[in-house]
Computed example of a mutant assay.
Amino acid sequence: MSFLSKLKTVAAGIAVAAMVSTAAAAADQPTVGVVVPTLDAQFWNSYVDFMKKGAGELGVNLVVLNADNKPDQMVKSLEDLVAQKVDGIIFTPYWATAARGLTLAKEADIPVILTDSYPDFSPQSSRFPNYLAFIGPSDEDAGYQMAEALFAKIKPGADGKKVIGVVNGTAGTSVAIDRRKGLEKALKESPDVRVAGEVDGNFVRDTSQTAFESLYQGNPDITGVWAANGGTATGVLAAIKNRGKVPGKDVVVVGMDLNPENVEAVKSGDLLFDIGGHWLQGGFALVMMYDAIKGIPVPADADNVKLKLLPLTQDRVAEFQKDFPGGVPPYDFKQHSRFYNKEAKPAFFEMHYAN
Results as ranks from 00 to 15, higher is better:
M256N: 14
M256Q: 14
D257M: 12
D257A: 14
D257W: 10
D257G: 10
L258H: 07
L258G: 09
L258C: 13
L258K: 06
L258S: 10
L258Y: 09
N259A: 14
N259G: 14
N259D: 15
N259K: 07
N259Q: 15
N259P: 03
P260A: 14
P260I: 12
P260C: 12
P260M: 11
P260V: 11
E261A: 14
E261Y: 07
E261D: 15
E261K: 13
E261T: 15
E261H: 08
N262V: 04
N262G: 11
N262S: 10
V263A: 13
V263Y: 05
V263T: 12
V263F: 06
V263R: 10
E264G: 12
E264F: 08
E264K: 15
E264M: 13
A265Q: 15
V266L: 01
V266D: 00
V266H: 00
V266P: 04
V266T: 03
V266C: 01
V266S: 02
V266A: 01
K267V: 03
K267Y: 06
K267I: 00
K267N: 14
S268E: 14
S268G: 04
G269R: 13
G269W: 10
G269T: 06
G269Y: 07
G269E: 14
D270I: 05
D270T: 11
D270M: 11
D270A: 15
D270V: 05
L271A: 10
L271W: 12
L271I: 09
L272D: 06
L272W: 03
L272G: 04
L272V: 04
L272M: 05
F273A: 03
F273W: 07
F273L: 03
D274H: 08
D274E: 11
D274N: 13
D274M: 10
I275H: 09
I275L: 12
G276P: 06
G276C: 05
G276V: 05
G276E: 09
G276R: 01
G277M: 06
G277E: 09
G277Y: 06
G277N: 09
G277T: 06
G277L: 07
G277A: 12
H278S: 07
H278P: 07
H278M: 09
W279G: 00
W279S: 08
L280S: 06
L280D: 01
L280M: 15
L280Y: 08
L280H: 07
Q281S: 15
Q281E: 14
Q281K: 03
Q281A: 15
G282Y: 09
G282Q: 10
G283F: 05
G283H: 08
G283K: 07
G283Y: 05
G283I: 04
F284S: 00
F284R: 00
A285K: 02
A285S: 09
A285H: 02
L286T: 00
L286A: 03
L286H: 01
L286E: 03
L286R: 02
L286P: 03
V287T: 01
V287D: 01
V287P: 02
V287C: 02
V287F: 01
M288P: 00
M288Y: 14
M288W: 04
M289R: 05
M289V: 08
Y290T: 00
Y290W: 04
D291R: 10
D291M: 05
D291T: 05
